[in-house]
């Protein structure tokens, strides 16, 4: 077995950035802390990006350049990456569980004959054995999976490998500063492709002002119906700078437009207060709101995963509880106003 760990960098110009988090995950994962992590950077005109990554301590960069890699394309990515990875035979291949990573990683694993574990949140090492932990059943269960192949492709759920869990990289020595590490670049010929990328589009509706709000009252499928959004609106009106937010399921059902969606593929928010109403708490939703300063969750299901990240948890039927809460809040506002 050659070098232990490879990372596939996210290409420039994509939503993100996720690469640093994946590199930190890979560095924590390696058994020998002096062994470098090999970062593959596919793209076109990647020079600056590759050299920037090569400045990170403990990182060795291999660029892969070709016309077919000018923008992300699953087919081109797999074709360009599989041969150098197969030659290197790393034990772990770490990729961000982003829209792109989730798109090409499983196919790459099949091509390499590697194990594949996606949306990984953490890992555990026992001697030489490593298991990866991920969520199932809308975040209610945690499953530990052991790879049983020589190589394993792991996609890391963005935001789950928090900064506090990352090892402190030692600052580069003067010697390293003076002698930037060389970047190896592999050129690949133009590939015949069945997928053609046409470009990035913004979502049909503009992003809501979710990022500016102090308080977000977020609706999940558990609110029961569109008609109950008015209750959430009334709760929001108790705060000075509030807005509605929504889980993916609520936008899918058409109860609120897509611009209200909070989560990995929606908006990432960090308000002072996040009130999750009837939200089950899938990891993709948590990824978008766990940075909130204070989280209150109201849900009738005491097992709901949203309670795992909540500061305050209320197990109640929403349509019955919210009117009581709104009244209690209004009462306090009135008293405050008279003072």
């Amino acid at each position: 077995m050659g070098e232990g760990i490879a990372v596939i960098a996210e290409s420039k110009g994509r939503p993100g950035p996720f690469t640093e988090e994946v590199i930190a995950f890979a560095q924590a994962l390696r058994e020998d802390p002096t062994a470098p992590v090999r970062v593959f950077v596919p793209g076109m005109g990647i020079g600056a990006h590759a050299h920037e990554l090569a400045r990170l301590p403990g990182v060795v960069v291999t660029g892969i350049e070709g016309e077919s890699l000018a923008c992300y394309n699953a087919e081109a990515w797999k074709t360009a990456l599989a041969p150098p990875i197969a030659a290197l035979k790393p034990r772990f291949i770490c990729i961000a569980h982003s829209a792109d990573g989730a798109d090409f990683a499983p196919g790459l694993a099949v091509r390499l004959g590697a194990a594949c574990i996606t949306a990984v949140e953490s890992f555990r090492r026992t001697g030489d054995a490593v298991t990866f932990t991920r969520s199932t059943l809308k975040g209610k269960l945690s499953v530990e999976i052991a790879p049983e192949a020589e190589m394993v492709v792991v996609t890391v759920l963005p935001g789950s490998f928090g900064r506090e869990a990352r090892p402190n990289p030692s600052p580069p020595t003067e010697e390293q500063e003076a002698m930037p590490k060389p970047v190896e670049v592999l050129g690949i010929p133009a590939l015949p492709l069945k997928i053609r990328t046409l470009g990035i589009l913004t979502a049909p509706d503009q992003a809501a002002d979710l990022t500016a709000a102090e308080v977000i009252v977020a609706a999940g499928r558990g609110i029961g119906g569109k008609e109950n959004l008015a209750l959430l609106g009334r709760l929001g009106a108790c705060f000075s700078r509030s807005t509605l937010g929504a889980s993916r399921a609520v936008c899918d059902a058409g109860w609120l437009p897509r611009r209200f969606q909070v989560g990995q593929t929606g908006m990432r928010v960090s308000p002072r207060l996040y009130i999750a109403c009837g939200i089950s708490g899938a990891p993709q939703h948590l990824a978008g709101m766990r940075g909130s300063q204070s989280i209150v969750a109201i849900n009738r299901d005491p097992q709901a995963a949203i309670f795992q990240v909540a500061d305050v948890a209320v197990v109640e039927e929403l349509v019955l509880f919210l009117p009581l809460l709104i009244e209690a809040c209004q009462k306090r506002r009135e008293i405050g106003g008279r003072r």
Partner: peptide, 15 residues
């Protein structure tokens, strides 16, 4: 159209 992060989408042509 594929869904990306942050409300973006990517347009593709697939044979």
């Amino acid at each position: 159209e594929r869904e990306l992060e942050g409300g973006f989408r990517e347009a593709l042509e697939v044979s």
